[in-house]
Write a protein that binds this DNA or RNA. Structure first.
Lengths: 136, 136
DNA sequence: TATTGTTATACTCTATAACTATA
DNA sequence: TATAGTTATAGAGTATAACAATA
């Protein structure tokens, strides 16, 4: 079939994101994590005591949608919450959470390595900076 | 906030796709089109008489989800269906559909041009081939 | 006055299973 | 036996509005 769509960067971006996202989700699923769980946990790991609101802003997630996300992580014993003041609560990884995020990072790094291997060498180093220029 | 996530190509890919997709959707919305509508119409334009099933395969959309999509396009007077045999039907753009897809392509090309302008010149030419290597 | 955490809700997108009719 | 079109439905993911309590 004639297909003019892959010539559009926007289309290719969406297709590439969908394809790789589905694959990564399947792998993180073996750790009982979603992609957003792993992202949130890595941010908490790098910023212990961060609030849910700050996390939401950094991940570009609605504050309201953080509630079930954090509840899931807490119920799974992966994070703890401690009051900062009367209205804010700081988030930290539990011991289990630290182990899980380490496993997740390993899964992700393996995945990204395979991902980049698909890209011809001449283009490889340009992918990340080009992508980050699009949204950062 | 310390944020290790933009160093992961998979994360940057998803963030870039989300950000650009939201922007493009808003622009296509002024033409009463969704992204997938524009994609489907461009494929029909390039392959007049194509079936809905073939379209679904090319776009990686479930056959079942093509039904409301095509109904929407037909109700809007953008496509016509003509029986090929007893079970298949060929899709074609109407006159209105051809005008609309031309407008959509203009919108998309303008958008992509702005998109690529955000990417530093040294990386620009590498984006599309790198992306296409990830899913094609 | 702005922000945090929360509840409730609706909407879009997508996936699955099943069915009929036809190739 | 495989494919086309379809129906119905369920599950994610996300967006909006509103609220009480606190900074």
């Amino acid at each position: 079939m004639r297909d003019p769509l892959p010539d559009f960067p926007g289309y290719s971006l969406r297709r590439a994101a969908n394809a790789t996202s589905a694959e990564l989700s399947a792998r993180l699923g073996t750790l009982d994590l979603r992609q957003v769980d792993a992202s949130a946990m890595m941010l908490i790991e790098s910023n212990p005591g961060v609030t849910g609101s700050a996390l939401a802003r950094q991940l570009d997630i609605q504050r309201a949608n953080m509630v079930p996300l954090l509840k899931r992580l807490e119920d799974a014993g992966l994070i703890d919450r401690a009051p900062i003041d009367g209205k804010s609560q700081g988030l930290e990884l539990t011991t289990t959470g630290r182990e899980r995020v380490t496993a997740a990072r390993h899964t992700i790094e393996t995945f990204e390595h395979e991902l980049l291997a698909r890209v011809p060498e001449e283009h490889r180093a340009h992918l990340l900076p080009a992508l980050n220029a699009l949204w950062q």
